[in-house]
Each structure stands twice: as C-alpha cells, then as structure tokens.
Design a protein around this nucleic acid. Sequence first.
RNA 1: GCUGGCGUAGCUCAGUGGUAGAGCAGCUGCCUUGUAAGCAGCAGGUCGUGGGUUCGAUCCCCACCGCCAGCUCCA
Length: 560
Amino acid sequence: MLTSFPGAQLAIGPPITDGFYYDFDIGRPFTPDDIELLEGKMHKILAEDQPFDREVIDRDQGLEMFADQRFKTEIITDGEASQGVGDGVITVYRNHDFVDLCRGPHVRSTGFLSAFKLLRSAGAYWRGDEHNPQLQRIYGTAWNSQKDLDAYLERLEEADRRDHRKLGVALDLFSFPSELGSGLAIWHPKGALVRKIIEDYSRNTHLAHNYDIVSTPHVAKANLWETSGHLDFYAEGMYPAMELDHGQEYYVKPMNCPFHILVYQSSARSYRRLPMRLYELGTVYRYERSGVLHGLLRIRGFTQDDSHIFCTEAQLAEELQALLDFTLMVLRDFGFTDFEADLSTKPEKAIGDPELWDRATDALRASLEVADLPYEVAEGEGAFYGPKIDVHVRDAIGRRWQLSTIQVDFAQPENFSLEFNSPQNTRERPVMIHRALMGSIERFAGILIEHYAGAFPGWLAPVQAAILPVADRHNDYAAGVADELASLGLRVEVDDHDDTLGEKVRRAITAKTPAVLVVGDDDVEHGTVGLRLRDDEGEERGVPVPDAGRRLVELCAPPR
RNA sequence: GCUGGCGUAGCUCAGUGGUAGAGCAGCUGCCUUGUAAGCAGCAGGUCGUGGGUUCGAUCCCCACCGCCAGCUCCA
C-alpha cells in the first residue's frame, strides 16, 4: 500500500468472518485497477515468505514511529488495547520496512498466508461513526488453501443464484417500478398467489390458536401517535404528516400497536377474558433511509403478521411459553429446522418496575429452556419498554436470518392507561406482548425464495403442475386433465403455446414447477399422463390421471 | 443519509459528440412436435427525468429520481 500510494494514511485492519479488511485514506477512492495492482503485490510478498517480527515499544517510541500516520497516532493516544496499545506498552509487528500496530498474535511470515482474494472497496466511517470522515475500506477473504478459497467463492456464487431479487424477475413474482418510489413493491399474479398462500396459512393457524382477527386502517391522527410515544421516539422512521381540514394532522402507521390497543379499550375488560390475542396482517410504512433498502428484505411498505396479546402478569409466563411453541411450529412448517435465539435484557434506561422486568425476563428465559432452543443473552439490548426474544433461522445454505420477535411491553399499557377488572373487582393494568412470527410477509417471502432457491415446496408453489400437450391436437385433452386436477384443489396450468415439447418442458422446468405432465396420443387413448417430478430423475409414462392426481395431492399437501 | 459504481427494447447486455444494435421474450406464418431452446419474418427504444455546454448530446457537465456494493441506521 505504502509503496503504491505514498503518503497513504492507514487506519485499522482487523480480521473478520471469512477474511479481513483494512481502512485507508489516500485522498481518493480506490478503482478496480488499484485493487488489482495491490492484489498482485500481495501475491508477490506471499511468495517471498517475508517474516513478521514482534516488538514491544513504549508510548513515546510509538508516537515517534507513527508520527506521519494520524490514525495510528490517535489510536496510541487513546490507548486502544484491541490495536496492541496497552498500558504504557505497545506491540507492533514489523515486516521489512513496514511496521504496524497489532495486538497479535500474528503469523510468523507471509508464506503462511496461502489463499486470499481482494473482494471490493467501499467507503467506511472512521471509528464507524457517520459524523467522522469516510475512509476507503478494502475487503478481502483469506483461507487455508486454494481449495477453501474456491469453495468460499462458490458459496458466494450460490448466494447470488438464490438472490430473491433476481428470482423475483425470473419467476415473475414481483417488481419495484421506479414510478412507485424506493422500497415499494408490486406483486405480480404468481407472486401475489404465493403471498396469499402464506397469508392464508397465517390467518388459519392464528384462528386455530385462539387469536382474534382484527382489522384496522392505515392512518391515524397525530394525537394517537403522541399518546403511544411514536412521535417522540420514532418520528424519523415515519412518513411525514398529511394535513387535512382544520389543520388536523394524520400519519400513516409505522406500527399496528396503537390500533390494537384501541380495540382493547373499546370495551371494559375482565380477567376472565384474558389473555386477549388480537391479530392482524397489518400493512405499515416506515421511512427507511434510502441506503438501507434491499429488495424485499428491507422495504418501506410491508405487512406484518402482527399480534398484541393482553394478559395479566400472572399469565405472562404460560403465555410466553405457548407463544414460543407456536412460533417454532410456524417456522418449521415453512421448512426451517435450525433455530437460535437472542434474549435481550433490561437496558440502563428503562421504564417499568425492575421486579416485573426480572419476572418477564425469567419467563422468556424459561420458555427458551423448555423449548430447548439455543440462545444467547444480549445483556442490556432490550427495548426501554421491555425484554424480548428474537428468533433466528438458518437457511438451506447456512445463512442466519432474524425472523420472529417476541417483545414484552410495559410502556404502552401505561401510555394508554389500559385496565382490566380483577377477581377482587379492582382495576389492574395488563401486560402487553408484541409479536410477529414471520415478521414481514414481504421479507419472509424473500427469505423463502432464497431458502428454496425459488423451487417452492408443492404447497407454496404458485403453479403446482404444468400440463404440456405434445401437439395442438392434444389441447382439449390437456384441458380436461387440468379440470380434473383442479377439482382436487391443485393449481395447474396448461401450456398451449405453439412450441415444441422440448421448449415447453424447458419452460416448465426453469419456472421450477414441482410437477410436469406431458400428454400425447397414447395418453388421449388410455386416459393417462406422462409424469415428471421436479425432485426426481427422469419421467414416468402412462400414469392414469386419477393416480397422478392422488400423487400430486400428496406432493402438494400443506403442513396443516 | 454518506462514499463509490451504475441507469440503452419486457429481460440480459453491446455501442457512439452527427437522434442506436444483439440474444432471449412478444407478434405473424410455416412446422404438429413424446421430455431442457425447430425455422422464417415482423414489431419494439424521447438511450431514467430536468437543466446546461455544443452547430448538434444517448455520449460531456450539474441537479433530481431509481438501482447496486459497503458504511451508518433498524426505538
């Protein structure tokens, strides 16, 4: 770096998962040519097996040694242990003329570094603070062998092939027309069908688990958001106010909770009717900063499978236990099997009775223990209004996604002065649980697309069976087969394009349709189909239509 | 929001200071097809939007919109 870019200012360069980065300031961004040049030099240095030597120096020596490096000087002045600056002692590693702060340990020589690749450069803030100047960060990946490196690069390509934004176009599921604005999606017929299947599943399972479905509007007066505290704590995440008659301000909802609270408040509540579980597929809008938007995974308009549970303090533990079981059931139904959770505890600045915090946190922890869910405690990471559990899943290629969140909320019942009548006919304050299992339907769909690489299991596939007439004289028979299968509840499509069979087969396969049925002369004569299943090799000829129907119904059976 | 890159047909992309091209998709015709692309023809673009420079801008400059990578953010 210093030989190629004399005067370059070096910041920090730590190892990270799968590799490393280093932040520099060379007064301009790096170009792809710069990266290539640096990578070439690095390969040369590795081949020369240059030694790294550890030295321990004192603070004054350090300041002198790094006098022309302002970031290093700052690190020494601030005494950052992670960078090798200890109490009056500094460890540095020397490699020929180059010397850098480093806590160590360090490989003995450059020959120990066998396989790496520089991946990209991008801006990054000094010390990660957006108020500080931006540096240029170079990312690289490093492995024990070329084989490991190749495998890693292959994983990156696999992730790229699964990218839901690309599959969304290829499978004609959704799009983001620029006319709409950033972070707003439209769902095409096939995508909307997948959504409907997910949403129907969600509604049905909630009804089956003693939730009450409610329905609420998209906007509400400013006053409601003042009461809920959103205008104090969340205003920058909200779309700006709309002013109506007499200067009355309305806001589009970023969350559903205040509406569900109003449902709770619509009548006097008794302990006999708690817990009360209000559920809604609630569409909300949040003003996410433009740079964070990412396909369906980070979007400005989305629909939550949202519920607010109102219960007594005494009911909290049992309710949380049942809720976590319900959550895992839902996630398993969508094909996820590996779960990890975070338990976020009381932050320094928090509201509510500390004893209540303890009990709620213990209840959350107990539910994790009973469910045998591996979890980590995120000390002090809870919201100011209550502790929470976040559930993460691993997808088919091992990536971790946060899906479900279960939050205990001591604040909103207070804000809205919620009450219920106790057995002693006193007025008590309920506890609220705020929870979303899929999180957002859009994001969940996006994650499913990546998890399944677009090849949805039968029950989620928008088209479960494609029926391909060999020649156009078989179109009528194909339509008859389609009717028969549709009457069994299957989603089928006849491909009557004027194309060769090979072309139609290719179209059905690239659309990742679970079952491809071919019908020709033999089939018309015998009442059969040729059957080719996505997950099986080869094809089967002469399958009687009722048999094919039975098998497809089984293949496409929903989890419940 | 910040830094950098990008925006050409429905999709994927080429290209040029003198108003543009390919493949796929689409349409039409031929073919009547038995398991991953049959053949031919046609049509399709205000080159993201608005300003500026220029005799002339899709190309150069500025702003905005949108996309991508990373940073920051996600109560």
